[in-house]
C-alpha cells in the first residue's frame, strides 16, 4: 500500500494538532485537518522512505512496550546510580569517554539509541562516527573501557529494542 505511510504521518500530525490546541470544536478540527493534510503531502517523502504495511503494527507495539520498559526500569536504574554519586561525600566518579559500537541500520534506530543513552543520567552521546558505526559516549562511572564491554553495559538493551522497532 502506497498511501498507508501518508495516513500514518497524517494521524501523527493531526493528533499533535488536537492535543496542542486542546479544542474539539468544528472550527479548529476542520482547519487543522486542512493544515495537517497539506503538511503530510509536503513532508512525508522526507519523513518515511519505505512503504509501510500491517507488519509495522508489531513494531509499534514494541515501541510502546519499549517506552514503558525504558521509563520504568532503565531510568530507575540509572537514576539510582547517579543519586548515589551525588549524595555520597567522596567524589566517587570514574569519568571516561568510551567508544560504543552499534548494529542498527536505519537512521531512526540510531537516533533512538542515541536519545536513550543521552536521556539516561550518567551517560551522554557526544559524537557519532557513521563510518565505523560507533558512538562516543561520556560516562560518569566507566566500568569498562573496551568498546564491546562498554556496549554491553550501556546500550545493549536499547539496541535490542531499536533493531526490533526500526530495523
Amino acid at each position: 500500500m502506497k498511501f498507508l505511510k501518508y495516513i500514518a504521518v497524517f494521524l501523527l500530525i493531526y493528533t499533535f494538532y488536537i492535543v496542542f490546541t486542546a479544542s474539539l470544536t468544528g472550527f479548529s478540527l476542520a482547519l487543522g485537518f486542512i493544515a495537517s493534510a497539506l503538511l503530510t503531502g509536503l513532508l512525508t517523502p522526507i519523513l518515511v522512505q519505505r512503504d509501510i504495511g500491517a507488519r509495522d503494527l508489531k513494531r509499534l507495539a514494541y515501541l510502546i512496550l519499549y517506552y514503558l520498559y525504558y521509563m520504568i526500569v532503565e531510568e530507575y536504574k540509572a537514576h539510582k546510580l547517579v543519586i548515589k554519586i551525588v549524595l555520597s561525600r567522596k567524589m566517587n566518579i570514574r569519568p571516561a569517554i568510551v567508544k560504543v559500537p552499534f548494529g542498527v541500520k536505519t537512521d531512526y534506530g540510531v537516533t533512538l539509541i542515541a536519545g536513550s543513552i543521552t536521556n539516561t543520567p550518567g551517560t551522554c552521546v557526544i559524537d557519532i562516527d557513521e563510518k565505523e558505526r560507533a558512538f562516543y559516549v561520556h560516562w560518569i562511572y566507566a566500568t569498562a573501557l573496551e568498546p564491546e564491554k562498554a556496549r554491553e553495559a550501556i546500550s545493549k538493551v536499547f539496541e535490542k529494542y531499536a533493531s526490533k522497532i526500526f530495523g
Binding site: 504521518v9 501523527l12 500530525i13 499533535f16 494538532y17 496542542f20 490546541t21 479544542s23 472550527f27 479548529s28 482547519l31 487543522g32 493544515a35 495537517s36 503538511l39 503530510t40 513532508l43 522526507i46 519523513l47 537512521d107 531512526y108 540510531v110 537516533t111 542515541a114 536519545g115 552521546v125 559524537d127 557519532i128 557513521e130
Partner: peptide
C-alpha cells in the same frame, strides 16, 4: 550529525502545525 537530522525531521512537522494553529486561532 545523523542524530540531529533525524530528530529535526520528526519535530519539524509538529512545529509547523502548532504554528499554523496559532495563526488559525488568532481571533479566538
Amino acid at each position: 550529525s545523523i542524530i540531529v537530522k533525524t530528530s529535526t525531521k520528526i519535530i519539524v512537522p509538529l512545529i509547523l502545525v502548532a504554528g499554523a494553529s496559532l495563526a488559525f486561532h488568532g481571533h479566538l
